[in-house]
Computed example of a mutant assay.
Amino acid sequence: MYYGLLFGAGVAILANSRPYEGLLLSLPAVAMLLVWMLSKRGPRPRIFATQIAVPLFIVLALTGTAMGFYNLRITGNVFRMPYQVYAETYDIAPKFIWQSLRPEPIYHHQVLHDISHGVDLTLYKLERSVVGFVTKNVAYVSWWMFYSLNVFLIPLIARCSITFHWAWHNRWGSFALLTYGVLVCGLLVEIPMMIHYAAPITGINYLFVLQAMRLWNWHNASRNVKQLMLWLVLLLGAVVAIGLLYVRTNFDDASVWYKRRAAVRDQLMKAEGKHLIIVSYGLGHLVHEEWVHNGASIDDAKVIWARDMNDQNCKLVEYFKQRRI
């Protein structure tokens, strides 16, 4: 029962953090579970039902009900996620390479136009050709591998062939390799690709790193040299981690845009009454430095952020006339 609950909890976390990538990661696990269940070494039906299927079903049913209720309250449809509404309302570029461009909507703010005509649209046009598709994905995968593994790429590169040979001939290694392949192939057909999209595969990354270190075997080298190289990788990893931690804790720049926004909000939260902040961006504004976002219950919020609407500001001010502008 413990493993069924754990499996269900893992799927629930993936479904609520990275739904698409979580689905790709779950497919090999579900397939392997079914193969094991139907094999001669599989459990008896009663044991499978009580120890795995029922606990798994309970966790997934509760998760699905909660997600459906959340969707219903926000979008009015149990199966329609808020992100889908956002994409259909503002985005032009699709999420997958086989999809077509959407009709351009009417934008009431320049910043929304600039976001929709930014990187995603450029990548979509680039991937219309085979050369562009290969170039984009090779660049992104290389950047992702270096960024996510950093110095731990050293043992993987040094023992790449041996690690692959182990994975190909080991049952659990083959499962990890299959899962890795399914997720990477799924990522390649996405138009936008950011490093956190591959977050579900992080554990398997370090599985291969540790296995490469375990299989490290320098030909014509002494045992001392092998141990020196392994400890050097670990030492470099520790240095990188300590360096990043030091930078994050000691270089606190109060001029960063999100800290300036937080300072304004904190100041107004302590002031009397309710407030409306009208934000106007300058020519050099970066579209991802977005000051305007509010909670779900806007009318009840103490501080509300709104974009400058020029001539339409009168309607905005009239609606929130009880607030300080």
Rank of each mutant, 00 (worst) to 15 (best):
L6Y: 08
F7P: 01
A9E: 01
V11I: 10
I13F: 12
L14H: 09
A15C: 02
L24H: 02
L24S: 06
L27V: 14
A29K: 03
V35S: 12
L38K: 02
G42P: 06
P43R: 06
P45F: 07
I47H: 13
F48C: 03
I52F: 07
A53Y: 01
V54H: 08
P55E: 07
G64P: 00
G64R: 03
T65W: 00
A66C: 07
G68W: 10
L72F: 06
T89Y: 01
T89H: 04
I92M: 13
A93C: 01
K95G: 00
F96I: 04
W98A: 00
E104M: 15
H108C: 02
H108A: 04
Q110T: 13
L112K: 14
S116T: 09
V119E: 14
D120V: 05
L121G: 11
T122H: 02
F133M: 07
V134W: 05
V134D: 06
T135I: 04
V138C: 10
S142W: 00
S142A: 08
W144A: 13
W144T: 12
S148W: 08
V151K: 02
F152D: 02
F152H: 11
L153G: 04
P155W: 09
S161D: 13
H169R: 14
R171Q: 07
R171A: 03
W172P: 00
L177W: 05
L177D: 09
L178S: 05
T179C: 10
L188T: 15
V189G: 00
E190Q: 15
M194V: 15
I195Y: 15
L210G: 12
Q211K: 08
Q211Y: 00
L215Q: 09
N217V: 05
N224H: 12
K226I: 06
W231V: 09
K270V: 06
V279Q: 06
G282E: 14
L283K: 12
L283E: 12
L283G: 04
L283D: 12
L283C: 07
G284H: 13
G284V: 09
H285L: 05
E290R: 08
W291M: 07
N294A: 06
I298D: 12
W305F: 11
A306D: 05
R307I: 11
R307G: 03
Q312N: 11
K315R: 15
